[in-house]
């Protein structure tokens, strides 16, 4: 027991969520409290909301410099410089995994997370794995019942999802985020899409009466990162505590978004007058065959030469889909 055993560590947690959001209240704050309690007050974490210290696009550099110590973010935001970002959880094309368990299997047990970890470790980042931030849907001012209805649909979507709708004739519009609500209200946009709870929290049900499924990413994934420098300074026992708390973080997040999504479907949709529409099984099959698979192959072909791990990840994903009977 040296002096280091009693040393108090102070970490800064830069979230890309705003105060009061589901992520902050149900997941991040409990995580911070848990770490502080487990460590007997030896690791204290201060929480900083979206954009407070650094924007989401600069957290990798801020972590490398040990300016902030922990952040929930995603390799997707850095896919321009980290090729593995192309196969990170939020950039999955539609209908790869269909349940939370399948997501666990693919990312935590089949090796995709291991590959992301390797890529991030090289950059001085300690990686705590992918977690669910809720299923991905989109919503619209007008009913979208079939893929044909996507023609000319002006929508704000992200990453691979934007390529998906464009493939079927929609027109993805890249608008500044704060302008989305107004843009839908006035008709500049016909709809937007991402994790379901933004439909609830940004009050988009006021302007979009149609909610379109089935969920295209089950779930949309994000990641928890820490600064390698800060991590290495921690005594081993605290490291073990943070690992454990991060596990719970991932589980808490998945539970919270799953339960609250049910509640929205059952309780809020009737109150808001939202109509839920699903693509047919035939359309889902078409999306996989005509978009998702070719998209994965394209990513492997384009990013594989920069980082062979990308091609390896694509192989893992395709094997997973074969095992589950989603592709032949």
């Amino acid at each position: 027991p040296s002096a280091a055993a009693d040393k108090v560590f102070h970490w800064k947690f830069q979230s890309h969520h705003t105060a009061g959001s589901l992520a902050v209240e149900r997941v991040i704050k409990p995580f911070i409290e848990r770490v502080e309690k487990m460590s007997g007050g030896r690791l204290k974490i201060s929480l900083h909301y979206a954009g407070e210290l650094v924007d989401y696009a600069e957290v990798d550099k801020a972590l490398q410099d040990n300016m902030i110590q922990i952040s929930n973010t995603s390799t997707l935001f850095f896919r321009g410089s980290i090729p593995m970002g192309w196969v990170s959880a939020p950039n999955m094309p539609p209908f790869i995994t269909r349940t939370n368990d399948e997501f666990n299997e693919l990312f935590h047990h089949r090796g995709v997370d291991r590959l992301v970890n390797e890529a991030l470790e090289e950059r001085g980042i300690k990686y705590f794995g992918s977690h669910s931030v809720g299923n991905t849907y989109f919503w619209s001012k007008k009913p979208i019942r079939t893929l044909e209805d996507l023609k000319g649909f002006k929508v704000r979507f992200f990453g691979s999802m934007s390529d998906f709708v464009e493939h079927f004739g929609a027109a993805p519009v890249m608008l500044p985020h704060p302008e989305t609500y107004m843009a839908i209200a006035t008709g500049t946009l016909d709809g937007s899409g991402t994790a379901w709870w933004l439909y609830r929290d940004l009050k988009l049900y006021e302007v979009c009466p149609y909610f379109i499924g089935p969920a295209m990413q089950v779930p949309q994934g994000m990641e928890l990162w820490a600064s390698k420098k800060a991590w290495d300074e921690l005594p081993e026992d605290i490291q073990a505590m943070v690992e454990t708390a991060a596990h719970v973080f991932n589980q808490d997040y998945m539970d919270a978004v799953t339960m609250e999504e049910r509640e929205m479907f059952n309780k809020s949709f009737p109150e808001w007058g939202t109509t839920y529409i699903e693509f047919s099984d035939a359309d889902v099959k078409r999306i996989i065959d005509e978009f998702s698979l070719p998209y994965l192959d394209k990513v492997a072909a384009e990013q594989g030469p920069k980082d062979p791990r990308v091609a390896e990840a694509v192989e893992i994903i395709k094997q997973f889909m074969r095992d589950y009977g989603y592709i032949d």
């Binding site: 550099k61 997707l76 935001f77 321009g80 410089s81 990453g159 390529d163 890249m174």
Partner: peptide, 21 residues
């Protein structure tokens, strides 16, 4: 060093368009 690193890895934007950053 930040701009240099971006040049070294030939960094692209994370957007759908993905131009050089």
């Amino acid at each position: 060093p930040w701009a240099w690193e971006s040049l070294r890895v030939n960094e692209f934007s994370d957007s759908t368009w993905g131009p050089l950053l």
